[in-house]
Design a protein around this nucleic acid. Structure first.
Lengths: 251, 251
DNA sequence: CGTTAACTTGAATTTTGTCAATGCCTGTGG
DNA sequence: CCACAGGCATTGACAAAATTCAAGTTAACG
């Protein structure tokens, strides 16, 4: 089921937040923990499990999702290196977490994690900021799901992936898609067929090109941005990663 | 637009978090600030405004929303007494906030709010927990928007409103809907017509009854719960037909 | 290299949206 | 306090978008 391809599928995993981490970043909490590996498709935990641990993604991509009574799946997020999994302040996990690609994580007990956070006036605001970022992208996703059509959803998603690659703000035009069409569909609130048709249409119009199922290249970035439907193409909005935040938060 | 009816429309405002607040709750941060009032329909702030203040809702209901380039509106949440507005750790607000009903709030400067939180080891975890709650309901909303049909959305929403009324977990069967059909539509990712038709259908089947546009009564709670589609009551865990992967678990 | 899961493509169907007209609350002003 | 106006909601007919069902095709992995 989707294991490690020999292709650049993994290259994404190496990059990301590691380099941009502050001197004493959140990752430092985990740094003395051993690395654990999960094969593509394997679960880290299920919704309802005792929430005994918090994980830090070191390499690879995770999906977090919920399942409705009759089996419908909704993926609520994909997690990349630097992201934390399982921070919920609850006794039980609120969602399922599975590896999309082969994944490396570090594990920390929930209790000690909270202690560590609480004792460090330097880490606390970082965690807080991460939560706020998460909340902001959750809201963007609600806008997407509630008001965008299939094409706008796909374009928004591809641009999101494009933004992830670079640690600064530049979009890369070479986009790697680590997940399957089904994952995309369940994240975007569409069916697999609609995802496929929409991508085919984008290719047909020369807006993107494809090199294998998991690698696309954006050929008409301006068109993509317009099709993503956010309006303001060059908005100063979520420069997404760190540094755009208010400089308050003393301590 | 939608002002204070003489009906129990307001009663909801008084209840909520006030009673369940710990001795030194988050509200205490705001307690010395004067109460400000906003008329129904008036804005507290717009997306992009300098995020100079944090608000605590004291009475009434707010909507927070984003607008796409061509005018489509997506409401990402309704806020009730006890909720905080504008906690984003950003220089600018990320969304618009407007009064749905006449609203009373207390205002606090963002900077001092963060100071206060950071200095109090008692308040900190409360804020943290609030953020986690918010994240949890954002995820539920993503599930709703991504995988539920119109009827499931409406039923889920009405049950959500029903749950808000009581401070414990009991659902009230008398549900007050403080917002318009358009607000509901923009929150549920539907059109006003679909919302209307769906409610009409529920009434026609005797599942709910209506007393004016803003007050419904749940007559068949079990049916409502089933139609909401969460399949929550009896979950023998993995109903995951095709989604449960074999538990490999290498390393 | 062959098998099989993942993906694509097509046609029919369903759901929801759009447009348009009517009906009914709600709050205002008489 | 009541009547009335205008906004809000309902209803209907039609259109559009996305889903479903059903084959085919491709490419990933053993």
């Amino acid at each position: 089921m989707h294991s490690a391809s020999s292709l650049p599928r993994q290259t994404m995993s190496t990059s990301q937040t590691a380099a941009s981490q502050p001197a004493l970043g959140l990752a430092s909490v985990f740094s003395d923990k051993p690395i654990e590996q999960f094969a593509a498709g394997s679960p880290l935990f299920w919704e309802g499990d005792q929430a005994k641990h918090v994980f830090e993604v070191v390499e690879g991509v995770l999906r977090i999702f919920k399942i409705l009574g009759d089996g419908r799946r909704a993926i609520t997020g994909f997690l990349y290196p630097g992201d934390l999994v399982g921070v919920s302040m609850r006794a039980a996990y609120l969602y399922n977490a599975e590896a999309v690609t082969p994944v490396k994580v570090r594990r920390f007990s929930s209790v000690s994690f909270q202690e560590a956070i609480n004792l460090s006036p330097e880490l606390r605001p970082q965690l807080f900021a991460k939560l706020c970022d998460e909340m902001a992208s959750a809201q963007d996703q609600m806008v997407l799901l509630s008001r965008k059509n299939a094409e706008e959803r796909i374009c928004s998603f591809l641009l999101l992936l494009a933004k992830r690659v670079s640690r600064d703000n530049n979009l890369s035009t070479e986009v790697e898609i680590p997940m399957t069409r089904l994952d995309m569909a369940d994240y975007l609130g569409l069916t697999i067929e609609t995802v496929s048709r929409t991508i085919t249409s984008l290719i047909g119009r020369g807006i993107i090109t494809q090199a294998g199922r998991h690698d696309i290249s954006i050929k008409k970035l301006d068109t993509m941005l317009r099709l993503a439907g956010n309006g303001e193409v060059d908005e100063p909005r979520a420069s997404s990663r760190e540094y755009s935040r208010q400089a308050v938060w003393p301590s």
